[in-house]
Amino acid sequence: MDSLVVLVLCLSCLLLLSLWRQSSGRGKLPPGPTPLPVIGNILQIGIKDISKSLTNLSKVYGPVFTLYFGLKPIVVLHGYEAVKEALIDLGEEFSGRGIFPLAERANRGFGIVFSNGKKWKEIRRFSLMTLRNFGMGKRSIEDRVQEEARCLVEELRKTKASPCDPTFILGCAPCNVICSIIFHKRFDYKDQQFLNLMEKLNENIKILSSPWIQICNNFSPIIDYFPGTHNKLLKNVAFMKSYILEKVKEHQESMDMNNPQDFIDCFLMKMEKEKHNQPSEFTIESLENTAVDLFGAGTETTSTTLRYALLLLLKHPEVTAKVQEEIERVIGRNRSPCMQDRSHMPYTDAVVHEVQRYIDLLPTSLPHAVTCDIKFRNYLIPKGTTILISLTSVLHDNKEFPNPEMFDPHHFLDEGGNFKKSKYFMPFSAGKRICVGEALAGMELFLFLTSILQNFNLKSLVDPKNLDTTPVVNGFASVPPFYQLCFIPV
């Protein structure tokens, strides 16, 4: 009986604490739906499609509103004006990374994606500088992407125009580009180590996009005490870190300090320079996690976009025909596509942009946080508050993009057929937390897609009208449904 009384008292205290925290903070924060004790607004949000729920709530509470995930307040920004004001106009104040408990377990605050403060700034600055020195957006990395595009075309030829699921092959190409940047090595598509790495990356994007992960991140005790797919994700990350550590040891034994070959060499050189400046942010643990982040951000996002792009091109054969006509006119058949071609191919450029806009790969991006107490639109948001960005509300804005739910390359073309930029184009987020590999991803999408369409016609196994382009999961990332196609050599 005594234990029951204690339990009831504990629960009562928890409920009172929950109510007090919510009521004391709500006077400062933007308005929002009334949260339930302990669980907050979790029942009012469709976990399978958070973005749709945010759109519905914005119609009631406006472009800036507050939700509670458990006891934790989260300020939501919906629509271009609110997102721009926060991420661009007040970029420094909104540059923090929001709480992501599962990532905390995986990387302990290291790396480039989930770190904060001085650690994040130094690692991000170093990573950007190193990638630029190796030619991100310049010639040397373009050579690597072109080489991988040629290998991709050869792998597709091996399908002999038979029906195939493109998931694996389209994942190999961007993964190999990242391998060449980090390890100075590309792998054969049949290499077992490479296959294991690909498998872990593919599993992780599916797990991260599941409703279960949303629950884990908002009720963090689940991570330590409950079984579930989150444990598989943590094991996959541990596998990748151990693999990278092996490569780091190989580099330490063979590195030429006067001739760095890749990202690992550059990081080890930085560690050597910083060894007298303790404590340094440049450690082996930081290198492991930064490399894992580059793999995660640079492989599955690009391969998922490529997979979605081919599905949309199957669905819209008239678009595919126009792209192939432009390829034939500008590039021809006797040389590989290059980035200089893009400025002469406005329709193809528009298609690449429209694919990214339409699929809305990361509907709410990753959570941000404010780095200080900030007054925002007459609300006071306390330091450390998590900020949720609705990228969907920007990419699918119906004023900027008429009929935003329709796939239409003319969203990025003017009346004369010239490519038209849009400030609403934010597939990689915006501001200080914009994806480090934005330029690389854009290069890969253009070169891989043009190389495929230069060499193959795409054949659907069903009537294009019957192809479903609805994402199968739409949590962290929008993942396309399973499909097969035939690559018919031109």
Rank of each mutant, 00 (worst) to 15 (best):
V5A: 12
V5Y: 13
V5I: 15
V5F: 14
V6R: 10
V8G: 14
L9I: 13
C13K: 13
L14I: 14
L14N: 10
L17Y: 11
L17D: 15
W20G: 12
R21N: 13
Q22G: 14
Q22S: 13
S23A: 12
S23I: 14
S23R: 14
R26A: 10
K28N: 13
L29E: 02
L29Y: 09
L29S: 03
P31C: 06
G32K: 02
P33Q: 03
L36G: 04
P37H: 03
I39E: 03
I39R: 05
I39V: 14
G40F: 03
I42T: 10
Q44F: 07
G46F: 10
I47H: 13
S53L: 07
L54E: 03
T55D: 14
N56L: 10
N56C: 12
S58C: 08
V60L: 12
V60H: 11
Y61C: 03
Y61M: 02
P63L: 02
F65A: 02
T66N: 01
Y68R: 07
F69E: 04
F69Q: 05
V75I: 15
V76G: 01
V76L: 03
V76R: 01
L77H: 01
H78R: 09
G79H: 05
G79S: 09
K84N: 07
A86Q: 03
L87P: 03
L87Y: 07
D89L: 11
D89A: 11
D89T: 10
L90S: 15
E93K: 05
E93Q: 08
F94D: 04
F100Y: 13
A103L: 15
A103D: 15
E104N: 14
N107S: 15
N107A: 08
F110P: 06
F110G: 08
G111C: 03
G111H: 01
V113S: 12
G117C: 09
W120G: 08
W120E: 07
W120L: 06
K121L: 08
K121C: 07
E122S: 12
I123K: 05
I123D: 09
I123C: 15
F126L: 13
F126I: 11
L131Q: 06
F134R: 12
M136E: 09
M136W: 08
R139W: 09
S140K: 06
S140F: 12
I141E: 01
E142P: 01
R144S: 08
R144L: 13
E148K: 01
A149L: 01
A149R: 01
R150P: 01
V153M: 03
R157G: 07
K158N: 10
K158Q: 12
T159D: 02
A161V: 03
A161M: 10
S162V: 11
P163F: 05
P163T: 05
P163H: 03
D165R: 00
P166K: 01
I169S: 01
L170S: 02
A173R: 01
V177P: 00
I182L: 15
F183I: 02
K185V: 05
K185F: 03
K190W: 09
Q192R: 14
F194H: 02
N196T: 15
N196G: 10
L197T: 01
E199Q: 11
E199M: 10
E199V: 08
E199W: 05
E199L: 08
K200I: 08
E203P: 00
I205N: 04
I205T: 06
L208N: 14
L208F: 14
L208V: 12
L208Q: 15
S209E: 06
I213T: 14
I213V: 14
Q214K: 13
I215L: 14
N218W: 15
N218F: 15
F219M: 11
S220P: 12
P221A: 10
P221M: 12
I222F: 14
Y225A: 11
H230G: 12
H230S: 11
H230T: 10
L233A: 08
L233H: 04
K235M: 07
K235S: 10
K235Y: 06
N236R: 02
N236S: 03
V237Q: 08
A238C: 08
M240H: 02
Y243N: 04
I244P: 00
V248P: 03
Q252A: 10
Q252I: 08
E253V: 13
S254C: 12
D256P: 10
P260Q: 08
P260M: 06
D262P: 04
D265L: 03
C266S: 10
L268N: 04
M269H: 10
K270M: 14
M271H: 08
E272H: 10
K273G: 10
E274P: 07
N277M: 13
T283A: 07
T283V: 08
T283H: 11
I284C: 06
L287M: 05
L287K: 00
L287G: 00
N289D: 05
N289S: 13
N289Y: 13
V292I: 13
D293S: 05
D293F: 04
D293Y: 02
D293N: 10
L294T: 02
G296P: 00
A297H: 00
G298N: 04
T301C: 01
T301R: 01
T301N: 03
T302R: 00
T302I: 13
T304C: 07
L306N: 00
L306I: 12
R307L: 00
A309T: 08
L314T: 07
P317F: 04
P317L: 02
T320A: 10
A321W: 09
A321L: 11
V323A: 10
E325I: 10
E326F: 02
E326V: 00
E326H: 01
I327T: 05
I327F: 01
E328D: 11
R329C: 12
R329I: 10
R333F: 08
N334R: 13
N334F: 08
P337F: 02
M339R: 04
M339L: 11
Q340S: 14
Q340L: 12
R342D: 00
S343Y: 11
H344D: 15
P346N: 06
Y347R: 02
D349G: 08
D349I: 11
D349F: 12
A350H: 00
V352I: 14
V355E: 01
V355L: 06
Q356D: 01
I359T: 12
D360H: 10
S365F: 05
S365I: 12
L366S: 11
P367Y: 10
T371H: 08
T371K: 11
I374G: 03
F376L: 13
N378G: 14
Y379N: 04
Y379P: 00
L380I: 15
K383Y: 03
G384D: 08
G384K: 05
T386F: 07
T386M: 08
T386A: 06
L388F: 09
L388S: 03
S390H: 13
S390R: 11
L391I: 09
T392L: 07
V394R: 00
L395I: 09
L395P: 00
K399H: 12
P402A: 15
N403V: 09
M406L: 12
F407Y: 02
F407D: 00
H410D: 12
H411R: 09
H411V: 01
F412H: 03
L413I: 08
L413P: 00
G416V: 14
F419A: 05
F419K: 06
K421I: 10
S422P: 08
K423S: 09
F425C: 10
M426H: 09
P427H: 00
S429H: 03
A430Q: 11
G431I: 01
K432Q: 08
I434Y: 14
C435Y: 00
V436G: 10
E438D: 12
A439G: 14
G442S: 14
L445M: 09
L445Q: 09
F446T: 02
L447N: 02
L447R: 00
I452C: 02
Q454S: 04
Q454L: 04
F456I: 00
L458C: 02
K459H: 10
S460L: 03
S460G: 10
V462L: 07
D463K: 06
P464E: 07
K465L: 08
K465Y: 06
K465G: 10
N466H: 13
T469K: 02
T470V: 07
G475I: 05
G475L: 07
F476G: 06
F476A: 15
A477F: 08
F482C: 13
Y483E: 01
Y483C: 02
Y483L: 02
L485N: 01
C486L: 07
F487S: 00
I488F: 05
P489S: 03
V490D: 05
V490I: 15
